[in-house]
């Protein structure tokens, strides 16, 4: 199972508004605009590393919705994109054990 972590130890710099949030990533110097789903995923990872199932549970609770394939795939897509942007990184259970 893949465990997702925030990419760097440097704290993320947030600016929250009603519909969107902006995130300044110190390591890359990039500013990202995120929708509430993206914000919820990253803030959860900021709080604690998690795998896809844990994230789904958390998001379903926060947005008060059911965990279905659609939600899972949305979260999975966001994670892939965040990984590409270097906001998060993944580690496998096996790696953690060694």
């Amino acid at each position: 199972m893949q465990i997702w972590h925030l990419h760097s130890e440097q704290p993320l710099r947030w600016e929250h508004w009603r519909d969107q949030s902006a995130l300044y990533q110190i390591a890359s110097g990039e500013t990202h605009f995120l929708n509430p789903l993206g914000v919820a995923i990253l803030m959860q990872l900021e709080f604690n590393s998690a795998d896809l199932n844990q994230l789904c549970n958390h998001i379903a609770m926060e947005f008060d919705c059911l965990i279905d394939d659609d939600l899972r795939s949305q979260i999975a897509t966001s994670l892939t994109r965040f990984d590409e942007l270097g906001l998060i990184r993944c580690q496998y259970d096996a790696e953690l054990a060694t």
Partner: peptide, 16 residues
Amino acid sequence: QHRHTVLTWELNRILW
């Protein structure tokens, strides 16, 4: 400083 950030980040992404 901006160039340094850009270069080190690009390297980071290459390693990724």
